[in-house]
């Protein structure tokens, strides 16, 4: 028999058969190194078993309960900040990507000349568009215009309210895990 049995025992001290244990005992009487390790682990194991459970300090759960409100508030603030950072980050990344795409498909000279061209014809275009707009406004009955304005404003307010309420909810209650 070699040291293998001793190693097997140390790998799984409780998993040996009676025959294996007997072989191990025989080996231990002839091998001082394995005997030393065996005795060392037995002693350490006994020490672990004799070590008592450490009790939590008095008032532990009361301290937890007291800290819960503050921790929750901090967590909700953190979530709101993270959401804000994600939104700002996404906007910045999208803008950068759009700018990169724009400048890879258009040369700087083209952009400049188109800009100058646009500025030079802009006053004339404004007059034209104002004329078209005024013409169509005059053609549409006033009741329709008022109705359209109400619908448009209602939706705008509704979306704004949802957005503000969602941000307030995240700030005060955090993101609830499903």
């Amino acid at each position: 028999m070699n040291h293998q049995r001793s190693d097997n025992w140390l790998q799984d001290p409780a998993g040996m058969t009676a025959e294996q244990t007997s072989e191990l005992q025989t080996h231990l009487t002839t091998c001082p190194e394995c005997s030393r390790i065996h005795a060392g682990w037995q002693a350490a194991h006994n020490l672990i078993h004799s070590a008592p459970e450490i009790k939590a300090p008095v008032g532990f759960s009361a301290r937890f309960q007291a800290s819960l409100v503050e921790r929750r508030k901090l967590e909700h603030r953190r979530q709101a900040r993270n959401l804000g950072l994600v939104l700002v980050g996404a906007t910045v990344v999208t803008s950068i990507l759009l700018l990169i795409r724009f400048f890879t498909t258009h040369s700087a000279v083209d952009v400049l000349s188109q800009g100058i061209q646009f500025l030079s014809v802009a006053p004339q275009r404004v007059v034209e568009y104002r004329y078209i707009f005024a013409f169509w406004l005059g053609e549409i009955p006033a009741a329709y215009l008022i109705g359209a304005a109400i619908i448009l404003l209602s939706w705008t307010f509704l979306l704004l309210a949802i957005w503000i309420l969602a941000l307030r909810r995240i700030k005060h209650q955090g993101v609830t895990q499903p």
Binding site: E53, I54, K55, A56, P57, F60, S61, R63, F64, Q65, S67
Partner: peptide
């Protein structure tokens, strides 16, 4: 909080065995 009261000792004991310092163990258990 009732669950905290029930399991505070085993959790604290584990933290204490791992960290070896009462204050750190309490912080870790909390």
């Amino acid at each position: 909080t009732n669950l905290v009261t029930t399991y505070q000792n085993p959790v604290y004991n584990l933290c204490y065995r791992m960290l070896g310092d009462s204050q750190e163990a309490e912080d870790a258990a909390q």
